[in-house]
Amino acid sequence: MKKLFTILVLAVGFTVTTQAQKEDKQQLTIEQKTELTVKKMTLQLDLTQAQQNQIRPLIAKQVAERHEMWTQRKAMKKSGKKPTADERYAMKSKVLDNRIAYKAEMKRILNEQQYHRYEKMAARKLKRHSKKEEHKKHRNTRQL
């Protein structure tokens, strides 16, 4: 009986601690996210000040659009409404159009060597993201 009680207390304590940590986590503003991304890119690609100034508005636009889409998805999920096939197509098409435009701008701003490094970075990031999604799907199917 003592063991069961101890396990129960530990489980409740762990749950409360985890929830508190999630609530304490403050979201960064769009400007903060933009600045951090530009700094990371500067370190990885050796950007000049002029290139940083050219990239900053692109990153800000991208972060704002991502935040807007995330907010819409969260609201849709909360309401229990699922997008239709046409809505999903429109969303995915918009994302791909934005990605094409962003890539073209990056190619215009960066020199050949920097752009090559940027492509490698983007590929690694995409691979990491797809592995996370795959793991998430696998975990969700196991729970069912």
Rank of each mutant, 00 (worst) to 15 (best):
S130L: 14
N140K: 10
K136A: 14
I7N: 14
I7Y: 14
K33L: 12
I55L: 07
N111H: 06
K39H: 05
K61M: 08
P83W: 00
Y115W: 03
E87T: 02
Q62E: 14
T37V: 06
N111T: 05
K131A: 07
K39E: 07
T6D: 04
H135G: 03
A122H: 10
K61P: 01
Q27I: 07
Q51W: 03
Q113F: 02
L47H: 04
A85R: 05
M69E: 15
A20E: 08
K125R: 07
R124C: 07
I7M: 15
L144I: 06
I100P: 06
K2Q: 12
H129I: 00
K137Y: 08
T84K: 04
Y89D: 13
H116L: 10
K3F: 10
Q72H: 11
E119I: 12
T37D: 04
N53Y: 00
K77D: 14
A50R: 00
L36M: 13
A104D: 13
M121Q: 02
M1P: 15
I55H: 01
Q54H: 02
D24W: 15
K92S: 08
R139N: 10
V63L: 01
A123F: 08
G13K: 03
V9M: 03
T48D: 03
D46M: 02
E133L: 15
L10K: 05
P83T: 01
Q21E: 12
I30N: 04
Q26E: 08
Q27Y: 07
P57H: 03
A123M: 10
T141C: 04
L47Q: 00
Q52V: 00
R108K: 09
A75Q: 11
T34M: 01
R73P: 05
K39I: 03
K92N: 11
Q54R: 06
I109C: 03
I55Q: 04
W70T: 14
K120P: 01
N53V: 02
L45R: 05
Q51I: 02
T141M: 10
Q113R: 04
K120A: 14
Q52A: 07
K82Q: 13
E68C: 06
Q52P: 05
E65K: 04
V12N: 03
Q62L: 11
E31T: 09
F5L: 15
L8T: 09
V95W: 10
A104Q: 12
K132Y: 13
R124K: 13
T42G: 09
F5P: 05
G13M: 02
E119H: 09
R117H: 12
T141E: 13
K107G: 06
P57Q: 01
A123G: 07
F5M: 13
F14Q: 02
S93I: 01
Q62I: 09
F14M: 11
E105N: 06
M1F: 13
M106R: 00
E31D: 14
E133M: 15
N98K: 09
K3P: 06
V95G: 07
K22A: 15
A123H: 09
Q44L: 10
A90T: 03
A85L: 05
A122M: 13
K132W: 12
H129D: 12
R88C: 06
T34E: 03
R73D: 15
Q62W: 12
L4I: 15
K127M: 11
E112S: 05
